[in-house]
Computed example of a mutant assay.
Amino acid sequence: MPRPRGWPSLLRLVLRVPPGALVFLLPVLLLFSPFLVLYALARSARLTAWRVFVRTAAPAPVLDPTMARLRRLRTWAAVGCSIAVLAVFGNMADVGQELSAHWVALALTPWLLIVSAPVVLGVLIWCAPPARRPAMRAALRGPLRQLGLFFGSLAMVPALFYGLDLANPSHVGGSLGTLLVLASIAVCIWSVFLFLFAAATVVRTGFGVAAVHPAAPALLTCVLVGELAAIGGLPSGPPVIAYVFLVGGPATVTALAYWEIRRLRTRYGVRLRG
Rank of each mutant, 00 (worst) to 15 (best):
W76S: 02
D64F: 01
T75L: 14
R51F: 10
A68D: 15
S44H: 12
W76Q: 05
R71W: 09
P65M: 13
W50S: 04
A60D: 15
M67H: 03
D64R: 00
R74C: 00
T48Y: 09
D64H: 01
P59V: 12
A49V: 08
M67F: 02
P61H: 14
A60Y: 08
A68F: 08
A68V: 09
W50Y: 15
R69Y: 12
P59C: 13
R71M: 04
T56P: 00
P59Y: 13
P65L: 10
A57S: 15
A45K: 01
V62G: 02
R51T: 08
R69M: 07
D64G: 01
T66N: 03
V52A: 11
A57I: 07
L63H: 11
R69G: 02
A68L: 13
W50H: 15
P61D: 14
V62A: 06
R69C: 00
R72C: 00
P59S: 14
V54P: 00
R51G: 03
R51M: 06
A49Y: 08
W50L: 08
R69E: 10
L73M: 10
L73N: 04
T48Q: 13
L73S: 08
V54D: 11
L47S: 02
T56W: 04
V54A: 14
R72F: 04
L63Q: 10
M67G: 00
A60I: 03
A58K: 05
V54R: 13
F53L: 15
W76N: 02
A58V: 12
R55F: 11
R46I: 02
R74V: 01
R71Q: 07
P59R: 14
R55C: 06
R69A: 13
V54T: 15
A57K: 06
R71H: 04
P61F: 13
M67Y: 04
S44D: 12
W50K: 06
V54H: 10
D64W: 02
A68W: 08
A45S: 11
L70V: 13
L70K: 04
R74W: 08
R55Q: 15
A68E: 15
T56G: 01
P65R: 11
R69K: 09
V62C: 06
L70Y: 12
T75Q: 12
W50M: 06
A58S: 14
V62L: 04
A60G: 07
T66E: 12
L47Q: 03
M67C: 00
A58F: 04
F53W: 11
D64A: 01
L70F: 11
T48G: 05
R72A: 06
S44K: 07
A58M: 10
V54C: 12
A58I: 04
L63E: 15
R69N: 05
D64L: 01
